[in-house]
Design a protein around this nucleic acid. Structure first.
Length: 752
DNA sequence: CGTTAGCTTCTTTTT
DNA sequence: GAAGCTAACG
């Protein structure tokens, strides 16, 4: 088993040490054990949903370190999210005794590459202070490029350009190789934009997400000395979620593995859901062609779900062609059938789902944090949030607007970026006049024209313009004042930690005061966000006491939605199906099971293939331990219009005997909803003309109406949603707060 | 110079 | 129905 290729390989895992930690593998099933102890040479692990994959990975790392005497620093393990990486490290540390702070290269491709790039920056013509652009920054930059090329939104769509550039980078194509990518008529234009964009990035001393990996791959493929260094450093490679790796990531792994071939990949073809981001299922499917001597181990025992859930999932996924094929089995009982919930409108759907959640909580004592709502697109979360809030059920939404994408937070992060690297023109531009310091658009335009003409960064152009007195004296004075402040912060950041720097910036700029002192909800939220940033930073610094400003900024740039998810927090989790990958809950609700949404029409149009959508559904279902609820609505608001939706084809692909429509006997509250659907004219699923009166609130409550709530007090109605029993009104209270009220429960009085 | 009203687009998913 | 952008106004 332990084929020894050179003396640094783990040849001694045959030795007597093996018994010492035999407890490490004794709790594993035979396949898992084989997956953990097959340490040398290429290995392909096909790990079905719930088959103990994380367990295998953590045990494998522990086994390498303890049993095979592999230094922890020789292991390079790639996970799909930073959260998964943190959890794995945590579990490894719990498994074996390691000095705390043992450096373990377990992270995402992007994080690992960022670290490599930091130390090799000079070889790719970056400074080691380079910054990472997120997608919003990319867009800003592209828009700037469009302006420079005198293009209007009618000529090109910046978002499309971004998409083309990203795709090109994943395929390792340069500006001149866009044939077949960009629209044929405009391929020259796209090439020009791509090139300019890349130049601008360099001027900013910045890279985008794709560059992080691309630069490292290019470096490895062109500089064999550097590659050898890293091949020697990382002797054992492990890649999780291999079905979702793209060409770039494959090339990176291939390069690193070339010398020692100790490469273990873990994946599941049925859970590949990122092809739109360039992931190639063929990386997994063809692994044995690329490494003909690769061992294949299948993990097919599922430790998570009931028999019924697995049977339904298996039945569904059989419809896919691109598979190895596998048979998941479990020792668990049949359990409940899958439940189908149908609402007349999306509000009814949400109401029924929330009611089910409430019952499961109160009648079956299932904690809220053991329940999750999954949807195909973020926009569906809203209705469920509204109903959960109205019922006082705790919940957390993962996704939507990321914390670090909120305007206030972006402003402050931009300040930090400018301090870390004044050449970050993008960030400098953002904060130059925020809060207002009288450096307006005209001035900025003049300086950036000057910068462009003389090939200077904005920062240097500002200096130059002031020195040469190219601007009105008043402007120069203001710019100089700002530049002085910047110098002051830079000094400060050398002596103090990032948190203290942030405080200094807040104080010196009067940023919070610039919100104004009115006590509107908006201002309060902004202030709250700033506070939250301070807290988050504090916490980060506690966990990473040695972190520099650059480290902190890198973490912020690479933070993801799911990283914000707190499993400890009591509350129902709301997230997209994509975010749900790798998680598990006792009860899972998959909502919005309707045709244009799920399977998503645009996704099918893009790929010409429904299989990935089906896998997405498969991923969702297999997150559930005990129960799966599926829901849909007959009609749904989209783009401000009512749309009549067709039930998802996936509902028909489930075995009928395992799906039960929620009925009155089991859940009495369903009866009202049944009647509502009948009245709505859609209970048979057929489409009848919509009676518009059914979608408007009773006349007695109108927008702007003054009302009195028994406990909340007086206020003005600012929004009316829902109908009948589900009628919800938002009241802007005279105390300044806004509250949603379910009129069914509250005695609302009119006042004048 | 800064604000706002009205227009457009947007919803697929995210490292 | 919201957010982001332009154009026109104060």
């Amino acid at each position: 088993m332990c084929r020894s290729e050179d003396q640094r390989d783990a040849s001694d895992c045959k030795g007597p040490l093996r018994q010492v930690t035999s407890t490490l593998v004794s709790s594993l099933n035979p396949q898992q054990r084989e997956a953990v102890t097959t340490v040398n040479g290429p290995l392909l692990i096909i790990a079905g949903a719930g088959s103990g994959k994380t367990r295998v990975i953590t045990h494998r790392v522990a086994y390498l370190i303890v049993e095979c005497n592999v230094p922890a620093s020789s292991i390079f393990a790639v996970t799909f999210t930073n959260k998964a990486a943190e959890e794995m490290k945590h579990r490894i540390f719990a498994l074996i005794k390691l000095p705390s702070r043992t450096p373990l290269a377990i992270a995402t491709f992007h994080s690992l590459c960022a670290t490599i790039l930091r130390s090799e920056a000079h070889k790719v013509d970056l400074s080691n202070r380079f910054l990472i652009c997120d997608e919003a920054d990319q867009l800003t930059l592209i828009k700037e490029c469009c302006k420079l090329l005198k293009l209007t939104p009618d000529d090109v769509n910046p978002r499309h350009i971004r998409w083309i550039i990203n795709q090109a980078k994943i395929q390792m194509l340069g500006p001149s190789e866009l044939d077949g990518f960009a629209p044929a008529r405009q391929s020259d234009l796209y090439a020009q934009l791509y090139e300019l964009y890349q130049r601008k990035l360099r001027e900013n001393d910045a890279v985008d997400f794709e560059d992080l990996i691309l630069y490292v791959v290019r470096l490895f493929e062109s500089d064999s000395a550097t590659l050898t260094t890293y091949q020697n450093r990382y002797r054992y490679l492990l890649v999780d979620e291999y079905q979702d790796t793209n060409l770039l990531q494959y090339r990176l792994v291939k390069a690193l593995a070339a010398s020692h071939r100790n490469i273990c990949v873990v994946g599941d073809e049925d859970q590949s859901i990122y092809s739109w981001r360039g992931a190639k299922l063929s990386n997994l499917m063809d692994f044995q062609k690329i490494f003909p001597d690769a061992r294949l181990i299948r993990l097919e025992q599922n430790y998570r779900s009931t028999q019924n859930i697995l049977a339904a999932a298996a039945h569904l996924i059989k419809n896919n062609m691109q598979r190895f094929g596998k048979r998941l089995w479990t020792e668990r009982q049949n359990g409940h059938p899958l439940m189908l919930i149908i609402g007349a409108t999306e509000r009814d759907e949400a109401m029924l789902v929330v009611e089910a959640i409430e019952r499961l909580h109160s009648q079956e004592q299932i904690s809220y944090s053991q329940m999750a709502i999954f949807y195909r697109q973020n926009s569906l979360s809203r209705n469920f949030e509204d109903h959960l809030r109205a019922r006082n059920i705790p919940y957390q939404v993962i996704g939507g607007i990321r914390f670090y994408d909120r305007a206030e937070i972006k402003d402050l992060i931009a300040y930090l970026k400018v301090v870390a690297n004044p050449n970050a023109s993008l960030s400098l531009q953002r904060v130059l006049n925020k809060p207002r310091r009288g450096i307006g658009e005209r001035t900025l335009q003049q300086v950036s024209d000057f910068a462009h003409a003389h090939n200077l960064t904005l920062y240097h152009a500002l200096h130059q313009c002031c020195q040469d007195a190219r601007l009105p004296a008043a402007a120069i004075k203001k710019i100089n004042a700002f530049l002085d402040q910047l110098v002051h912060w830079q000094e400060r950041s050398k002596q103090r930690n990032p948190r203290q720097l942030l405080d200094a910036i807040l104080e010196d700029t009067g940023y919070i005061e610039s919100f104004g002192n009115e006590n509107s909800l908006e201002v309060l939220i902004k202030k709250d966000n700033v506070q939250e940033l301070q807290n988050a930073m504090q916490q980060y610094l506690q966990e990473h006491p040695l972190a520099s400003l650059e480290h902190y900024l890198e973490m912020v740039s690479l933070a993801t939605h799911i990283d914000e998810f707190d499993e400890q927090e009591e509350g129902v989790a709301l997230m997209t199906l994509h975010c749900a990958k790798g998680l598990e809950f006792r009860v899972v609700f998959i909502v919005g099971m309707e045709e244009p949404i799920f399977p998503n029409r645009r996704a099918i149009e893009d790929t010409g293939d429904i299989e990935e959508e089906r896998r997405l559904f498969y991923v969702g279902m297999t997150r559930a331990k005990d129960r799966v609820f599926l829901s849909r609505a007959d009609s749904r608001m989209a783009f401000g219009r009512v749309q009549w939706n067709v039930p998802s084809i996936f509902l028909r692909e489930l075995p009928t005997e395992l799906v039960k429509e929620l009925d009155d006997e089991e859940f009495t509250w369903v009866k009202n909803a049944r009647e509502a659907r009948r009245a709505h004219g859609t209970s048979g699923g057929c489409t009848k003309a919509l009676d518009p009166s059914r979608h408007t609130a009773p006349l007695s409550i109108t927008l702007g109406q003054r009302v009195r709530h028994p406990s909340l007090g007086d206020g003005t109605v600012v929004a009316v949603r829902g109908e009948g029993d589900a009628l919800i009104i938002s009241i802007q209270l005279d105390s300044g707060q806004q509250h949603d009220v379910l009129t069914k429960h509250a005695q609302i009085e009119h006042i004048t």
